[in-house]
Simulated assay, not measured.
Amino acid sequence: MRTFAISDIHGCCRSFESLLQKIGFEKSDELFLLGDYIDRGPASKGVFDLILKLKEENYKVQCLLGNHEEMMLHALHHPASSEAYSWKIWNGGIETLKSFGTGLVKNIDPKYLEFIYSLPRFIEKDRFIFVHAGLNFSIPDPFADEESMLWAFDDRPVVNIPWLSGRIVVHGHRIHPREQIKDDIGRLDTYPILGIDNGCVYQKKRYNHLYAVELHTMELSFQKNIDT
């Protein structure tokens, strides 16, 4: 069985589907998706539909909550807030709502909202800790800081190696050029933090790809954005 991780799809459904085909994702494999399925790209609904279809067909897919899903839920409960406005205008919410054919989160089919509500903030499996943004190692129990799991922005945090006890943190959220992702894989023995977000939705040099890492071999597969 192979184990893959992918993060920050951001509404790029065609790129996501193409990457799954490229790695030959099978029912015997396991896939961890690290949040931010929505916003900025054109097909947030399509991303959800593909994930739900895979799960219905008994593919092993485990999904985390991302900060963009949290912003969407905030807009659901506080539609007139400045945060809801910011999500729509500056963080890709308008594109997400358009993919659902509505201008309001409350009009989205409840099955999608229920899926988002069901998402955990971290998953621990074997020697890996999967989280969207990162962990706060400045406190005794990094799992106690749920906000950092979605919003941490420190690109090279000081790591509590004894607390990790041989585990590796795999995350997205902060975009890394492909050279850094490759370099970080080579340093996991001494710095056990791996960010795999290459900024699929950002059309600039060294970015604009969706990455999958196979965690037993640490082999990287990538798909250039074919959605935008």
Score class of each variant (00 low, 15 high):
Ala84Cys: 10
Leu164Ala: 10
Leu220Arg: 06
Arg174Ser: 14
His132Cys: 01
Arg156His: 12
Ser221Trp: 12
Leu113Ser: 05
Asp154Thr: 14
Asn91Pro: 01
Arg206Asn: 15
Ala212Asn: 08
Leu50Tyr: 14
Met218Glu: 04
Ala133Ile: 06
Ala43Met: 10
Gly103Asn: 14
Asp29Cys: 01
Leu65Ile: 02
Cys12Glu: 09
Pro140Ser: 15
Gly24His: 11
Arg40Met: 03
Pro140Phe: 07
Asp141Glu: 15
Lys106Ile: 13
Phe153Trp: 12
Gly92Tyr: 08
Gly41Val: 07
Glu179His: 13
Glu83Asn: 11
Leu65Lys: 10
Phe16Ile: 11
Leu19Cys: 11
His74Thr: 08
Thr3Asp: 04
Asn160Gln: 09
Glu17Asp: 14
Glu214Cys: 06
Ala43Phe: 11
Leu64Asn: 00
Ala43Asp: 15
Tyr202Gln: 13
Ala144Cys: 11
Met1Glu: 05
Tyr117Phe: 09
Val170Arg: 01
Val131Ala: 02
Leu104His: 14
Arg127Ala: 04
Ser44His: 05
Ala75Phe: 02
Ser18Glu: 15
Gly195Pro: 08
Lys205Thr: 14
Val105Ala: 08
Ala144Leu: 11
Phe115Val: 00
Glu179Ile: 12
Ser15Lys: 06
Tyr117Leu: 05
Val47Pro: 07
Leu34Trp: 02
Pro42Gly: 03
Asp49Pro: 09
Thr96Asp: 07
Met149Tyr: 01
Glu69Lys: 03
Leu164Gly: 09
Glu214His: 07
His68Phe: 10
Pro110Cys: 03
Phe137Tyr: 15
Pro42Arg: 09
Leu34Phe: 01
Phe130Pro: 00
Phe32Ser: 00
